[in-house]
Design a protein around this nucleic acid. Structure first.
Length: 210
DNA sequence: CACACGATGCACT
DNA sequence: GTGCATCGTGTGA
């Protein structure tokens, strides 16, 4: 329930070590306020089922590997608690939460989730539900599908994680079993492709990969 | 300035 | 299993 027992995670919550943040995010609720097609305000609530940690300059798969500090990666050097969103393959927006201390360019990628029972429904839910891309109308098994449904793009880049940005995280006390897996889509990263930095809700149906 | 390519998803064989 | 859309960005000329 997203009622009295829910708390909004403050930016400081994300300044803890990246792997801790990534693991703790599984089971939390990613909230997205937006204006529906009928001009009403809606809050979509997506419970996170899968995350990945990208642990900075020593991580070959991380955009900040070897100290790569550019206009794109600059935000990663901020203290945890802000968004890093980028476009990949010219198509998909990837939602990342910057984690850890300042000058420690690390982040957590949100890879999958599912809409909670008490999430607002979009006016055009029928249209979205009929989208046969989705194996189940409420599950979003993959980072690109998730951002598409939540209408998240690079407008979020650099904003503070919280209600003022229209995207925030709530903790409603949900506890979920966590398993560790290798990360996805980083075969170019050598030995790092085998590092167990993907955190999944054990056996959940909404995972991006078994 | 040119160019290679990606933290994906989907269609098709 | 393979092919490919589509474009911002990092890299090197």
């Amino acid at each position: 329930m997203s009622t009295a027992s829910s708390t909004v995670l403050a930016p400081d919550w994300f300044t803890r070590p990246t792997c801790v943040v990534a693991a703790d995010l599984v089971g939390k609720v990613l909230c997205r306020k937006l204006i529906d097609t009928d001009d009403t305000v809606k809050v979509l609530r997506m419970r996170i089922s899968e995350t990945e940690a990208y642990i900075g300059e020593s991580d070959p798969a991380c955009h900040s590997h070897a100290g790569t500090r550019t206009s794109r990666t600059e935000i990663m050097y901020e203290q945890g608690g802000v968004f890093y969103v980028y476009l990949t393959y010219g198509v998909h927006h990837m939602l990342n939460l910057i984690s850890g201390a300042a000058e420690s360019p690390e982040s957590v990628l949100i890879r999958a989730g599912f809409l909670t029972e008490d999430s607002d429904r979009l006016f055009d839910e029928q249209l979205l539900s009929s989208d046969k891309q989705l194996s189940h109308p409420k599950q979003f098994a993959g980072p690109g599908k998730l951002t598409k449904r939540l209408q998240i793009d690079r407008d979020l880049y650099g904003k503070v994680i919280g209600p003022a940005s229209a995207v925030w995280i709530e903790d409603d006390g949900c506890q979920s079993p966590i398993s560790l897996r290798p990360r996805i889509g980083i075969d170019y990263a050598g030995e790092a492709k085998d590092w167990l930095l993907r955190y999944v809700w054990t056996d959940h149906a909404s995972l991006s990969k078994k």
